[in-house]
Simulated scan of single mutants.
Amino acid sequence: MPEYEERFIAAAVQAEPAWLDLDAGIDKTIALATEAAEAGASIIAFPETWLPGYPWQLWLDNVAWQSQFVVRYAKNSLEVGSERFERIRGAARDLGIAISLGFSERSGGSLYMAQALIDADGEVRSVRRKLKPTHVERTLFGEGDGSDLAVVDSSLGRIGGLCCWEHLQPLTKYAMYSQHEQLHVAAWPSFSIFPGAVYALGPEVNTAASQQYAVEGQVFVLAPTGIVGEAGQALFADTPEKRQFLALGGGYARIFGPDGRSLADPIPPSEEGILYAEIDYTAILAAKNAADPVGHYSRPDALSLRFNAAPNRVVIGGSTGERRTPAEPASLDAEQEAELDALVG
């Protein structure tokens, strides 16, 4: 493992996106990264689909009504390697801060719920996609594959990330823990939809999921969240009934240590801001002394995980124009080829 910082300041964002305006969203991303860098942070984490904002239209009305957002949302989604993406890379490099970015990725004609880790030198360490979009998200976004469950080396140690309800998937979490993650980004939208009616979508359950991930995997967790402000509510909730279903606020950003304790005072749910906490990886050693689920606290004779980390490409052996992340192998190795042969007979 390359050398990395073992003690540093980390930042988690709680803010309202620049809804469906990619350029304005990038401006706000750079402004928040600048603020965090000036405060001494070495990494800043942004919410799920921060660019161009979480698509709340999916939860509020029928497909015909949602159609007004389709083209606009796609046009304002971010292409990896584009000039706009390079702006964010350049900002990370110029500011000397790592950026964990949640965004809607446009690849060809498809959209994916993505997270990119850009190191403080501007290098892209990973781009991953949500393995299984949740519920109505599947009407807009495609799926990731096993290669998107990756923990990568960086200047700040081994970093991974998941989106939203991926933190309710036990096997997904175990696959991440198995890669000896030290810092995890749990990217969430705002907890604004169906307030009080669907408890599982609320802040109590989802904040607890971030905390459980920290104590279960003995990792530090940055849990940024979005906010729905008046601009967001006006855009997506065009009737009094919809305004009851999409509440203002919903910001519950948190930072947790590997023993599950909260490391930063929360910001009021309707306010924008940045949470900061000191990360000291020696705390992981203390936490793992008690329970390491992929080490001394495991029972592989009774329970084990089959984890296929190979990319699941549409075309094998050809060039599809599909993006390839730095963590993704350029081709199948011998073992993966054998598995593929077994699958196809």
Results as ranks from 00 to 15, higher is better:
residue 306 R to S: 13
residue 137 E to K: 07
residue 83 E to C: 08
residue 257 G to A: 14
residue 273 G to F: 04
residue 314 V to N: 12
residue 258 P to Y: 11
residue 257 G to M: 12
residue 217 G to I: 00
residue 14 Q to W: 01
residue 284 I to Q: 07
residue 45 A to R: 06
residue 119 D to V: 06
residue 217 G to Q: 00
residue 325 T to W: 02
residue 341 D to R: 12
residue 292 D to W: 09
residue 273 G to H: 09
residue 55 P to V: 00
residue 184 H to P: 01
residue 323 R to N: 12
residue 326 P to H: 12
residue 71 V to G: 13
residue 208 A to Q: 11
residue 47 P to Q: 01
residue 90 G to T: 10
residue 20 L to Y: 08
residue 62 N to A: 09
residue 301 D to I: 06
residue 115 Q to E: 11
residue 50 W to M: 04
residue 168 L to P: 05
residue 121 D to L: 06
residue 248 L to W: 04
residue 260 G to T: 07
residue 202 G to P: 02
residue 103 F to E: 01
residue 149 L to W: 00
residue 122 G to M: 05
residue 150 A to G: 03
residue 339 E to A: 15
residue 218 Q to V: 09
residue 240 P to I: 02
residue 77 S to A: 11
residue 60 L to K: 03
residue 304 S to L: 07
residue 53 G to A: 12
residue 60 L to R: 02
residue 135 H to I: 13
residue 121 D to I: 04
residue 104 S to P: 00
residue 303 L to A: 15
residue 37 A to S: 14
residue 27 D to I: 04
residue 305 L to V: 15
residue 2 P to R: 10
residue 111 L to D: 02
residue 294 V to N: 10
residue 246 L to C: 06
residue 162 L to D: 07
residue 321 G to F: 07
residue 258 P to I: 04
residue 19 W to Y: 15
residue 26 I to R: 09
residue 35 E to V: 13
residue 131 L to P: 01
residue 221 V to P: 05
residue 79 E to W: 01
residue 305 L to Y: 11
residue 261 R to C: 03
residue 331 S to Y: 03
residue 263 L to E: 06
residue 2 P to Q: 07
residue 320 T to E: 15
residue 297 Y to Q: 15
residue 256 F to I: 03
residue 312 N to H: 09
